[in-house]
């Protein structure tokens, strides 16, 4: 095989990886602040994908344009979930939080199955088959747009946590829960906002991914797992780590699909997960907990 093929596949994997990274960023933000592991993450992304697909089918609205309103809808869903369901569970044992979110995930997957049926749906935009030629590289236009959008959203998020007053307050909650309570921050509202922001990330990622992959209700759990793999690889709670993990997993999957068989690609992602868990449990960019 000529070298360009490897390069093309690697670039494509990298761009998809950026979108994965954005999805995982949502999980990481939620865990980093609320300390709850969102077992319904992939399912929430599936909801976003179905909104994108439905809007496109009915009104020919481009998912990339609809990314912002879809993210807003997911923000509302995430806010409501945290405020209504999860907040009372903050002080409960870990496994009972898992079970709560697993219950939510089961309901979401099968709710989608009831509404949309099991068939795969996809979006065919006018630029579906366009590509850019950069030297010897052929870059798929859809993936290039999606990757660029993922970077834009991630930058916006970094800026929010760095410079915005609410963003800084959320960081204060994450660093010191008791301290945040003492200085009078409304922690529960900030948690709900955080969950909303995490959900918005996954909403934006879902809108982008609807351009790249077909959606069925059943893909939810697989993407929840993928998000875990990415976030643990990059470092649970680390925002740059989530993006880096996403790119790494995207690349691995793409290259594994090329060298072996596409259906075995998740094995490689899990292989990376196991290695990271064993040898660098805090993740590549994570901080070691005392």
């Amino acid at each position: 095989m000529p070298a360009e093929i490897y390069l093309n596949v690697a670039v494509s994997g990298l761009l998809t990886g950026l979108v994965y990274g954005l999805m995982a960023l949502g999980l990481s933000v939620i865990f980093g602040v609320v300390r709850v592991v969102n077992f319904a993450h992939g399912e929430m992304m599936t909801i976003a994908m179905y909104i994108a697909v439905t809007l496109f089918a009915a009104l020919k609205l481009d998912p990339l344009v609809m990314m912002v309103p879809i993210a807003a809808v997911l923000f509302a869903l995430g806010y409501a979930m945290q405020a209504g369901l999860i907040n009372p569970f903050i002080t409960r044992p870990e496994h009972s939080q898992f079970m709560l979110l697993i219950a939510v995930a089961i309901i979401l997957v099968n709710g989608l199955l009831i509404i949309f049926g099991p068939d795969a749906r996809s979006v065919q935009t006018s630029y579906s088959f366009d590509s850019f030629l950069i030297g010897p590289l052929i870059v798929d236009a859809t993936k290039a747009y999606a990757g660029a959008a993922a970077i834009a959203v991630a930058i916006a998020l970094f800026a929010f946590f760095r410079f915005n007053r609410i963003g800084k307050a959320i960081r204060a909650c994450a660093d010191n829960y008791m301290g945040a309570l003492v200085v009078g921050l409304d922690v529960k509202r900030l948690y709900a906002l955080t969950f909303g922001i995490g959900a918005a990330c996954v909403g934006a990622a879902g809108a982008m991914l609807s351009l790249v992959i077909d959606v069925t209700p059943a893909i939810g759990p697989a993407y929840t797992l993928l998000a875990f793999v990415i976030v643990i690889t990059g470092g649970l709670g680390s925002m740059p780590g989530a993006l880096l993990g996403g790119v790494l997993i995207g690349l691995t999957e793409a290259l594994a699909g090329l060298f072996f068989t596409p259906s075995a690609k998740t094995m490689f992602a899990f292989g990376i997960l196991v290695l990271v868990l064993l040898f660098r449990p805090q993740g590549i960019l994570g901080r070691r907990q005392a």
Binding site: I106, I114, P118, P217
Partner: peptide
């Protein structure tokens, strides 16, 4: 005949019990 209804029911039972 609604596929998924049984699982939604499982999910609701689980939700009710954990809550």
């Amino acid at each position: 005949d609604v596929p998924g209804l049984k699982q939604v029911f499982y999910g609701l039972c689980l939700l009710a019990v954990v809550m």
